[in-house]
Design a protein around this nucleic acid. Structure first.
Lengths: 230, 230
DNA sequence: TTAGTTTGCGTTAATTATACGCAAATGTAG
DNA sequence: CTACATTTGCGTATAATTAACGCAAACTAA
């Protein structure tokens, strides 16, 4: 075997969003070769003088118009050496959580269509993107229980019932509404706003806000976030 | 900027071992260019037709004579585009835990020397290997608390005091010996052997063994390992 | 007014964690 | 042979946390 290395390096972006009590992921439709159209995760080749994290943020922006400042690295996929049939390509996957209600997406260069796709109706995707997405979902599920990332999926101000619903939906678990509320409130990083939900059914509900500063202070004191389920 | 990509892809191996009540990592000494010698993590370029995980296991074997069957992916380092001064190189880091008392290491191709290095006396390493190692250590610490990986660092049969010591040392925390024992035993995946420790001081201690099968059964039933510290 | 709905606060029992006490089983020093 | 140092292994009391549930308050719609 000759020693020459001809491997391309790509990045892929998994962007999770939450709306209508469901978890979504951002997909693009791409044309491959002459005929085939495939849904895929946003992503593409890293440029020569570009860091990996810059690359994934650039590709996401180019293909979906979504402008993020940070994505977290998920995993690097390079064990299947034929994952791309054209060349050997290794892909570093990144993920992010966004408030989907507050985001303008539009197809741009490279992508023909961009869409939020519900997590339980994902089609067959290009390359090994189904595998990548699965890994991202299990990471999301795990992280949800030990870091307060659920708030990233919600608007600035949200209802307790939204938060509760988010947890139940994503983790596919039942949960006691009252104990959940008690526990989260006991942490002390949520603050009540003076605003009420516009929904006109049942008792009016206060809107809450996640206080990141307070959370960071707690962390410094050794606090450890955790949500457990039966 | 031209579209041509000339990025090499490498793998690096972090192998943790435990002996003499201390945590160690496997390092090699390499010659760079004409004069400089540097300690570094084992690793090297991925071959064209080789999966990432095969590559890291091969490199580790070539450089240290340590033959593993599995390593877990840690992180991919590619944000500092000058991390290797010669070319742009992206490195996928993998780590593993081994029973150091049971391992023959020897310098081989590429490496001049191989050595277990105590984690609190790590020298300045080549490239960004200090950064990589730091990340590996924090991953190890985190994982130790929610997966029963401590046993991988011990011999097949071990003393409870060894296990206790391992946790205290790596996590740098105090722990109540009796509560720790009670908790671990309550999980039911440790089995007593008929053997006793050869140490001739104090009351003779039973040797224990980690029953992976039993652990896997528990996992299937929804069990979740956890060791918390004050 | 009444029924339906969701919020927000509370109480109690069960479980788990924490902080210890102490005897058993050895080797060793005198 | 005895007293002592040392480490193991088991136990118990108390505090803290979690889980299970009750119910009134505050609104809308009819």
């Amino acid at each position: 075997m000759k020693n020459f290395q001809n491997i391309r390096i790509a990045v892929d972006a998994i962007v999770f969003g939450y709306k209508n009590n469901s978890l979504y992921v951002l997909l693009i439709e791409q044309q491959f070769g002459s005929a085939d159209k495939y849904w895929a995760l946003p992503g593409g080749l890293v440029k020569q003088d570009e860091s990996l994290s810059d690359a994934v943020i650039r590709e996401l922006h180019e293909e979906t118009n979504v402008q993020l400042t940070f994505m977290e690295q998920l995993y690097t996929f390079g064990d299947d050496i034929y994952r791309d049939s054209r060349n050997r390509v290794i892909s570093v996957a990144y993920y992010a959580l966004v408030d989907a209600s507050n985001l303008e997406i539009k197809a741009d260069t490279d992508a023909e269509r961009v869409q939020w796709c519900k997590i339980d109706t994902i089609p067959i995707l290009a390359f090994d993107h189904n595998l990548i997405l699965e890994k991202a979902i299990s990471r999301l599920k795990a992280k949800l229980t030990y870091e307060p990332i659920g708030f990233d999926l919600l608007p600035e101000e949200f209802l307790f019932s939204d938060l509760e619903n988010l947890y139940c939906t994503i983790l596919e678990k039942e949960i006691d509404r009252r104990n959940f509320r008690k526990k989260i409130l006991s942490y002390g990083f949520l603050e009540e706003t003076d605003n009420f939900s516009p929904i006109k059914t049942g008792r009016p509900a206060k809107l809450f806000r996640f206080n990141k500063l307070k959370y960071n202070e707690l962390i410094k004191k050794g606090f450890h976030f955790e949500i457990k389920f039966a």
